[in-house]
Structure formats: structure tokens, C-alpha cells
């Protein structure tokens, strides 16, 4: 499954620059709002679902080379955070849905963690 499939299926809003998302292969997912746990547990290349919108999520995603961050409940990262994400090449997506539902849908799509 590629990132474009996920964006279409969950109707996600793109917060960062557009890329060829169909070329971004995603096979695993992870969810937590505690960044120390993410650093310890998120698989490389996975999609990370979180409610945390602080700038540090970009650093963590860049460090772990995650495929994308899905921010739930419409939490809004600041402009500086988005700029940093673009600079680091991190894709950030947002949705009004709650983390619980996002993860459930990703699981239904066949993603595993």
C-alpha cells in the first residue's frame, strides 16, 4: 500500500508540500502521543498517528525516517513546525477524526504495527 492510498481512503488534508505519494510505500503503523515512546517503538518507514502537534514531532519523524505523520482531531501545528517539516522532507497530514478511528481504519486497510 502506498501513502496516496491512505490519503485518499481516509480523506486526509495535506499540511506540507506535495510529493509523489504513490511512490511512498507504507506497510506499518504506530500510535502514541508520548514522543519518548515513539522514539523507542515506531518502525522505520511507518505512518505515525498522533494528537501531539508540537514541533518536536518533526525531529522525531526525521530521526526515525517515518513515512508520514497523521495528526488527529484537527490539532494544528504552527507555521514554524510546517516549515521545518518541509525542510526535513517530512509529510504531515491532518484529519478531524480521533486517533482511535484513524488507527482502526488503517488496520482495516491492512496496515500492521
Amino acid at each position: 500500500m502506498n501513502l496516496q492510498n491512505i490519503i485518499d481512503d481516509l480523506n486526509l488534508t495535506l499540511l506540507t508540500e506535495r510529493k509523489d505519494f504513490s511512490a511512498v510505500e507504507i506497510s506499518e503503523g504506530y500510535t502514541s502521543d508520548l514522543l519518548s515512546c515513539v522514539m523507542a517503538g515506531a518502525p522505520h518507514g511507518s505512518v505515525w498517528v498522533t494528537l501531539q502537534a508540537h514541533a518536536n514531532i518533526v525531529a522525531v519523524a526525521a530521526l526515525l525516517e517515518l513515512g508520514a505523520i497523521i495528526i488527529s482531531e484537527d490539532a494544528q501545528p504552527g507555521p514554524a513546525t510546517l516549515a521545518k517539516a518541509n525542510q526535513e522532507g517530512i509529510t504531515m497530514l491532518s484529519t478531524p477524526r480521533k486517533s482511535f478511528e484513524v488507527v482502526g481504519r488503517l488496520w482495516e486497510m491492512g496496515l500492521r504495527g
Binding site: 514522543l35 519518548s36 522514539m39 514541533a55 518536536n56 525531529a59
Partner: peptide, 16 residues
């Protein structure tokens, strides 16, 4: 501290 502590919640001191 895990509960409400900067390092567990945000992973690191925000560089900025």
C-alpha cells in the same frame, strides 16, 4: 517524569 515531564512527552528539549 513520564507524566507531564518535557523529556518523555516531547522526547527532547525543543532545540528552538
Amino acid at each position: 517524569r513520564t507524566a507531564f515531564g518535557l523529556l518523555p512527552v516531547l522526547g527532547m528539549v525543543p532545540p528552538e
